[in-house]
Computed example of a mutant assay.
Amino acid sequence: MNDLEKRKQVYGICGECNEPGTGFLWCQPCNSKRSVDNFKNWTSGNKDIDKFIQQLQLNAVHCKNYFEWMIPFENFKDITYITRGGFGKIYSAVWPERYIEYWDIENQKWKRDLKGIASGLLDIHNSGKVHKDFHSGICQPANNEKQSVKQKGIYGVLPYMAPEVLRGYQYTKACDIYSFGIMMNEYISEETPYNKIPHNHALAIKICKGLRPNTFKYTPKLLADLITKCWDAKAENRPTAKELYQKLGQLSDFDDEYDYKIKLNRTSEKRSNNIQTHPQAIYTSRLLNFKNLPEPVNLGAIQSTLFSEGFDCQLDESDLNEMNQDDENNIE
């Protein structure tokens, strides 16, 4: 935006230089100076690459333009070997610190985002598109050559799929929000959803009848309420991607406090790191085809807990007969 008055209205005034911002919570001149001051503290080992990264940092008009270097190797967690490429080995890893969002003037440090996934989902929805396969597992091509064109069904990972999708209804933005809620709970609880039971027709029925993953008991209430709203059985009750992003933004000032409390309580609870996953719990995208699933409803928290642990399956005789007849054919 070249119009200074319009920039002032949209992005506000920088708290350091008192000039209009160049992006949301971002001032290019001030952050460029910080980048220059930090150039002496890092190098990629290649002058051309250094120059390229430096130019990206200097020209960044908002956080999504900012290319950060470097991230110390010891800051990565859960480093996992994937495969060997033509020029080296490939690994995946988790970066708990997350990317830079804005400069915290009061505390004189970079503020890092917890809501990056929500931001990405908002970008997808703002462009008029739907993700359709939103989960933390492994995706496979929807046009996998092993799948016949004649095969009918839905494609995805069962634990993350909204109940209306399981019943064959069209995938909508609200379905992505449901998946986001499942992923939020997974991140906080550090436990994949429904990992102790088979991901089959019986689970699809239970999800439609209100089953949801157990929330970690020390989850802050504001986050627990947001998660519950995301996976509401009625799509119209779920927040939009914009509302989700804004709500997480309102909680951003408490991110560090929330992370600390969750990690502290998780440690004190001495949760097992050796969680046994059921052999039929599948977290890769696949073709699914379920029939005669019930109308989606919500369950209370206590009832849902009993339900997930097998104490209250709530399956009537017709459900059982349907599963026995079609279970093998319903999952490709």
Score class of each variant (00 low, 15 high):
R34W: 04
R34C: 03
V36Q: 12
D37L: 15
D37Y: 03
N38E: 05
K40D: 02
N41Q: 00
W42V: 01
S44M: 09
S44C: 09
G45I: 02
N46Y: 09
N46K: 11
I49P: 10
D50C: 00
K51L: 14
F52P: 08
I53E: 01
Q54P: 04
L56E: 07
Q57I: 06
L58S: 07
L58I: 06
N59D: 02
N59M: 07
H62P: 04
C63L: 07
F67N: 00
E68V: 01
I71Y: 00
I71T: 00
F73S: 07
E74N: 14
N75R: 04
F76S: 14
F76V: 10
D78V: 11
I79K: 07
T80E: 12
T80P: 10
Y81M: 07
Y81N: 13
G86M: 13
F87R: 12
I90T: 06
I90N: 09
I90L: 11
I90M: 12
Y91A: 15
A93I: 10
V94L: 15
V94A: 14
V94S: 11
W95E: 00
P96I: 05
E97K: 12
E97L: 15
E101L: 10
E101P: 08
Y102H: 05
Y102W: 00
Y102N: 03
D104Q: 02
E106Q: 04
N107M: 02
N107Q: 06
K109W: 00
K109V: 05
K109L: 04
K109I: 05
W110L: 12
W110C: 14
R112W: 03
R112D: 04
D113E: 08
L114M: 11
K115L: 01
G116Y: 01
I117L: 08
A118P: 14
A118F: 06
G120C: 03
L121G: 10
L122G: 13
S127G: 11
V130I: 09
K132V: 04
S136I: 05
G137I: 15
Q140I: 08
Q140C: 04
P141E: 11
